[in-house]
Amino acid sequence: MGDSRPVYQRIADDLRQQIDEGVLAVGARIPSRSELKRTYAASDQTVDRAVRVLKAAGYAEGQFGRGVFVTDRSPIGSLLRTGGEAVDSPFAARINGGESVTALLWEATSTTTGAPPRIAERLGVTVGERVMCTHYEYLTDRRPLQLATSWEPLALTEGTEVVSPERGPYARRGVRERFAAIGVRVAGATELVGSRPATSAEAEVLGCSPGQCVTVIERTHHTADGRAVETSDIVVRADRWRLEYRITF
């Protein structure tokens, strides 16, 4: 039986196999359009579509004026999702080799806004209710590692010393410590893990192609009675980070 795959898919699969097997090493140039057309007896459109599939999967990236090159897809490390550090901070990670991230820098911007529908649902507030929204960008060795966006109901924090996560005496202290300072005990957090294509803005920061798969962790901190006090979206490249959970019995 002949190969029933569309030609563009066959080209993309063949190139992926060559990359996975090391025939095309990291940094190697993908065969040019004319070379691929000749090899597969394909049209410009078919070859271009195959290369787009390869880029979207994170196997290759274009360099203006030079061509398309194989990208490094080896995991940077693991995101630790178990224990107090993971629960209290958007960033808890281990770089490959077993070392924790130490030289970590991050930038944050906070603004007051109305809760969009999906955030209102997660926080248990009405749509449009005022929340503090904080955007984070985490870097180490000048590499962007992770993006995160956090939302906190201003009904809980407005007028207190913890209204801004990145300012005041409790800046950068973590959700539990900040809320404890205003008499709110955070008892735990719930996480939902999913994936989706990267937006253009996320791709630019994370160093991948728009549409490439990213892992998204929706995390919500709550009190013992289930009241949500903070929710956040944590975004990382799916091809560079693994999630690490430790289960004890």
Rank of each mutant, 00 (worst) to 15 (best):
R33F: 11
S74C: 01
G65F: 11
E166C: 06
E137K: 02
R38C: 08
D3Q: 14
W106K: 05
A203W: 05
S209K: 03
T140E: 15
E161T: 14
L36N: 00
A50N: 01
G188K: 00
S89G: 06
A50C: 04
L206P: 02
R118N: 14
G114A: 02
S100K: 12
I247G: 03
A238W: 05
T157C: 15
D48R: 09
L192I: 13
V229M: 04
D239E: 05
G98M: 10
I234Y: 06
G58M: 01
I247A: 10
K37D: 11
A41P: 00
R16A: 14
V125F: 08
T140N: 09
T248D: 13
G226S: 04
V186S: 10
G22E: 00
R143Q: 12
A228K: 00
P210C: 06
L243V: 08
Y245T: 05
G97E: 11
T109Y: 04
T82N: 08
L243Q: 09
S34P: 05
T113H: 08
P210W: 02
A189V: 13
S74T: 13
L139G: 02
V68G: 09
T134A: 05
A155H: 03
E177G: 02
T157G: 15
A187R: 00
G211S: 05
A93L: 03
T140W: 07
T149H: 06
Q18D: 12
R33S: 02
T102V: 12
T111F: 02
S4W: 05
F91T: 07
R219G: 01
T199L: 03
F91W: 09
R29A: 14
A171M: 07
I182P: 00
G2C: 01
Q18N: 06
R167Y: 04
Y136I: 10
K37V: 07
T71R: 06
T102R: 10
P75I: 00
S100V: 14
T113L: 13
V236I: 13
M1H: 07
A148T: 04
I217D: 13
W241E: 08
P6E: 07
A224L: 10
I234Q: 07
Y245V: 03
T223S: 12
C133G: 00
E191W: 00
E166F: 04
Q18Y: 05
H135D: 15
V70L: 04
V7Y: 00
V235I: 15
A42M: 03
R118A: 15
